[in-house]
Design a protein around this nucleic acid. Structure first.
Length: 482
RNA sequence: CGCGGAGUGGAGAAAUGGUAUCUCGGGAGGCUCAUAACCUCCAGAAGUUGGUUCGAUUCCAACCUCCGCAACCA
């Protein structure tokens, strides 16, 4: 397969700290990007930050800085995060970039020309206490109807305003057709079923603008000075704005039209990515995404949702600090369930690290290279075309890693069974042969883990080339204090 | 009857219409090349109740329990 491959994460909203969930998403995207590059295809890997909307506007006011300053900081934080995780992105889009804003406006115009945007009255609920608009889900049922949980004694005001709407409801049939295609759209299939039944249940048009006088931090609606775009509408366009869709850049044809397009997101984004965004693409006459991959959530050890009070953002820093990037990348590929939720605790992480990286790959590398160097075995060169991670072609991260550790286990067993460390005393020839075989297999391990653990790959290649065990263990043993 | 997901040894996962596999943890032994690592063996499991079947963990039905979502949290 030498097809062009376009891959993108969702854009995290800069109003927050990078957390484990997003780390999972971006690491997995990176693994696939590296995988397809290694396979010889052209890859375009997009990520970035979502930077408009009311929350940011209010937060900047609160902190007494300009919104621009706030989003610059936030965006940088996510970019640093991506760099720390060794993410090989080709583009980092910011939705406040001029090029993106221009594309979003063009997208709006085409949608409008095609008759999918209209204006209508919209009722919002507003809590005077918070001075914020509220969704029904933000409110709770009280004695006098809905009330704000923070200000239960204040009434909720109903505000009428005119907004622009996107005619989502017109795309029901076309979306269902898209899901019904042989190759499907959503991975895994149970998520596809979920979105399908959601769409079958009927779609409601959604609001895509906000009054500028109330909230100015957004992209101006073309031809209407009083409105700015609602963040979602603007943010989704990033997937093609980065390719220069609006100015007819060849990148767009190369990747979006002719390439295989792949989006990865958390399960909370199922609707936005696999229904709303797909409808928007149809509305402007563009090809839909080829695959939308849905991750589960990372939960706390008790299976409950992680919250800020549990400090999972601290956990990411802590993990990187103690265990290193490759360990986190490893965990993401192997121990975070492909599609279901995963319970996380530092103990679970530690166990995985110790058992498989320290005792597994790290120890195996040492024992093989120790023997091969001290017995004077000829180094084995990098084999031709050893790269074969079939499981990754079908986005099976868990399966791919299991294949690696199956091989590692077989190698450990081979050493015990054949005992080259004994043979070397009686039949050095045979011992050398055993080690040649093991070195070849170690190469294979290195090639397999390359997209997942790029730093470790380099260390292993280096050690294999020198035919000496690494000066520092690949994965140092870490004592955990409980 | 709002929608969806999940229930497998102490923990986490996998496969499968016919001896249920792997990792961690527990027990016993082996080895000495290696990071107190590695190998072998042992104990220990299918939420409940029905149905289909020669036979079900697997297919079907009902029920129970847990979890997520219900339109701006990956």
């Amino acid at each position: 397969m030498t097809q062009n491959f376009y891959i993108t994460t969702t854009l995290p909203y800069v109003n927050g700290e990078p957390h484990l969930g997003f780390a999972t998403e971006i690491i997995r995207a990176d693994i696939l990007a590296r995988h397809f590059r290694t396979r010889g295809g052209k890859v375009f890997f997009n990520t970035g930050t979502d930077e408009h909307g009311q929350k940011l506007f209010l937060k900047a006011q609160e902190q007494g800085i300009s919104v621009k300053e706030l989003v610059d900081q936030g965006s940088q934080r996510f970019k640093d995060f991506a760099d720390t995780l060794n993410i090989s992105y080709d583009a980092f889009v910011r939705t406040t970039n001029k090029t993106h804003m221009r594309a979003a406006q063009k997208f709006w115009e085409v949608c409008d020309e095609n008759g999918y945007i209209y204006k209508k009255n919209y009722q919002t609920k507003y809590c005077i206490g918070c001075e914020l608009e509220k969704q029904d889900s933000d409110l709770e049922e009280g004695e006098q109807g809905l009330q704000c949980p923070i200000h239960p004694h204040m009434n909720i005001e109903i505000i009428d305003e005119e907004n622009y709407f996107f005619a989502f409801s017109k795309f029901e049939d076309q979306l269902l057709e898209l899901y019904a295609k042989d190759e499907g759209l959503v991975v895994p299939d149970f998520r596809q079923n979920e979105i399908e039944s959601f769409v079958k249940g009927g779609l409601q048009d959604f609001s895509i603008s906000r009054l500028k006088e109330k909230m100015s931090w957004g992209i101006p609606v073309p031809g209407d000075d009083e409105h700015v775009m609602y963040v979602w509408f603007d943010a989704l366009v990033n997937y093609i704005s980065i390719l220069g869709w609006d100015i007819g850049q060849s990148m767009f044809d190369l990747y979006w039209k002719e390439g295989e397009t792949f989006q990865i997101c958390g399960k909370d984004n199922l609707r936005q990515q696999s229904a709303m965004w797909q409808a928007m693409l149809i509305a402007v006459g563009l090809p839909h995404t080829d695959k939308v991959y849905i991750n589960g959530f990372i939960n706390g050890p008790d299976g409950k949702k992680m919250s800020k009070s549990l400090g999972n953002t601290v956990a990411v820093d802590y993990i990187l600090d103690i265990y290193g990037v490759d360990a986190l990348r490893y965990f993401t590929a192997r121990h975070v369930n492909n599609h279901e939720d995963t319970n996380f605790s530092i103990e679970i992480f530690h166990e995985a690290y110790q058992a498989n990286l320290v005792n597994g790959i790290g120890n195996l590398t040492n024992r093989i290279l120790q023997m091969s160097s001290s017995y004077g075995v000829e180094p084995v060169m990098r084999p031709e075309s050893q790269y074969n991670n079939e499981a990754l072609d079908s986005y099976d991260f868990n399966g791919m890693m299991n294949a690696v550790f199956k091989l590692v286990g077989e190698m450990d067993q081979f050493i015990t069974d054949e005992a080259p460390f004994k043979k070397v005393k009686t039949d050095p020839e045979a011992a050398a042969q055993d080690l040649q075989k093991l070195l070849g297999q170690l190469w294979q391990v290195a090639e397999m883990i390359k997209p997942v653990m790029p730093d470790t790959y380099i260390k292993m290649v280096d050690a294999l080339a020198k035919n000496e065990k690494p000066e520092e263990p690949l994965f140092p043993r870490i004592e955990i204090s409980k």
